[in-house]
Write a protein that binds this DNA or RNA. Structure first.
Lengths: 193, 193, 193, 193
DNA sequence: AATGAATGAGTATTCATTCAT
DNA sequence: CATGAATGAATACTCATTCAT
């Protein structure tokens, strides 16, 4: 029974790697079967159809990210450090999975099934609440302004980080200064005092 | 001659609408022909192939955004106001074209031709330099910190705005406070002074 | 009116050249129009359709050959010389029109219309009777055996010539001895006396 | 494994029959699939594409002819008899496959792939050497003139036979005398001694 | 359970032909 | 008369899915 789960996981991993690399329509069931070292027919023993594999792979992908953030959130560490780790982790993941960030998953709206979209949006909400939790810790530590809704602060953090990484990815010629500058901006804003 | 350009534009508009709605693979040449009220064969009088139409539609889409930002940048207005307008415009566009933001275009890497990807990245760079120009104006007005590279500040602005909108889009149940809060964060940061 | 005929002829010549070079299906109406320096629509002023052009071109092609043989037949010359000239002419034509000998025209049975096939076969019969006429002259001159039906002799001559040329065409590395040897064979046979 | 080869052969046979009957362009993949009682997709399990099927069918066709001649050549029989059998066999084949003689295959230059053309020309060369071998036997038997290159004699034989058959095919109203007359011509020529 | 040979629905593209100018 | 922009019927080929083994 556990062996069954293992094979299912193998297929999912192989599929995810291919989807990330080539997209949904350019990944053939044959490719997945070969990559997972099983017969084409076997895929249908474990999954309903191609769509199903893609949906599950997307959910799995988001789950990994959530686990990651959950782990960071639960660390015994200061807000400052957690933020730094979050940034570095996001950076690592994005570069590794450059073709399939969460944003991109959601841009595949026409590919993922309606139901799975809802599931993923739910998970993103979960992810946000984890980050809000970290922000709340910052508030308790007296580091983060208390009068601003944590969701908004989280939004700023996630958005700035993401854009920073996107920019680094597209703009290979690194005209951008080092990452801690963005931290200064997040903490203190760009306005002259 | 101009009539020819008009028909080309008509096809492009019809195609763009369909691509935004249904994605590349789910949009059939037949669909485009019907939507543009021309014969299937006519599409090939104006475009090389489906790929070509998609590429052109993507470029067109980015061009519209750039024109928008260029217009804002060239206004005779203060930095503060330009930022506000930029935010509102982005909001308007994103909701209108919710399925096809620039990020999403770039997540179609496996669909758009290599050459067109380069063209679009070039245009994004152009877009960034327009926003940097606005930031520079803020510096001259003494509103924005001078010791931080404008690209970084622009990155913070774009990222925060984008994420804020994404959040609003996914999280229909609006738990998020009003938009000017995010401006306060951008200007002053989240750190307790 | 004669100008009309001239343009018709131009189209036919251009078409024939293309058909010989690329075959029926690989020759597009557009190609013919361009080659004849007329508009695509104009082709339909002079011909019913593509099929019609092909049919007429084939007939024209055969007509040229017949005219050629007729000319040889009518010369004031000996049988021996006429045969020699015939051979050289056939050689010239075959190499020039290597992709479209009469045999090949007939191998296009599924392309040429039934009616035109009949016309062409009629013309081939005419061609044969011209050659028979030359053979008859040989008989009168006392050079050719009288007790063998002229058609058979003509058949031997045409067949041997044709095969000789085909061989030369396919077998670029010329292992074959010079052409007058074949004449010796035709005149005297290969049997030891 | 052998079953696989069998199905491949079935497809090839069905395809060959259709190509012979209707030509390359008028034979649809669907037709072949129906004729071979398989699905359209199955054709692509056994062949690269339509071109590939045609090429293979042509080669197969020539191979059958070669096998036939090889068999005749290897018989324990006199030159005279072998020639007679060759003639009758050719007659049988040509009438059976009237739309697809070797000449016709080669007239499909624009259809068959360059590589396959070379293969077929190679096979024709092989066929010629088999016939030359028969001629050599004639020389040894003292029946055929030794001072004439065997290739030339073979050329005369093949050409005369082919033309004779072509004539019979086109000229349904049989004005042509019986076949052994042509043998007399081949052996003794048409010249008065 | 696992397989992969067989399948055929689905689609981009071509090109002969038409007809408004 | 001449044209070429517009057309859509026709077709090779792909690939997710099935099912007999």
């Amino acid at each position: 029974m556990d062996e069954k789960n293992q094979k299912r996981q193998d297929i999912l991993n192989s599929a995810m790697a291919l989807f990330k690399d080539k997209g949904f329509h350019n990944t053939k069931m044959e490719d997945i079967a070969v990559a997972a070292s099983v017969g084409k027919g076997t895929l249908y023993e474990y999954f309903e159809n191609k769509q199903d594999i893609f949906d599950e792979a997307c959910i799995e992908y988001v789950d990994v990210i959530i686990e990651n953030i959950k782990y960071i959130s639960n660390r015994d560490d200061t807000f400052n450090n957690k933020l730094l780790i979050l940034f570095n982790e996001k950076l690592k993941m994005e570069s590794e999975f450059s073709n399939m960030s969460i944003d991109n998953i959601l841009s595949n709206k026409n590919i993922i099934s309606e139901q799975t979209i809802k599931t993923i949006i739910g998970k993103i909400t979960e992810m946000y609440s984890l980050i809000c939790h970290i922000v709340d810790q910052g508030k308790e530590e007296g580091v983060v302004k208390k009068n601003i809704q944590s969701e908004i602060t989280a939004c700023l953090i996630v958005g700035a980080m993401g854009e920073y990484l996107r920019l680094k990815t597209h703009n290979k010629e690194n005209k951008i200064q080092e990452g801690d500058i963005i931290f200064d901006l997040l903490y203190n804003g760009f306005a002259v005092k």
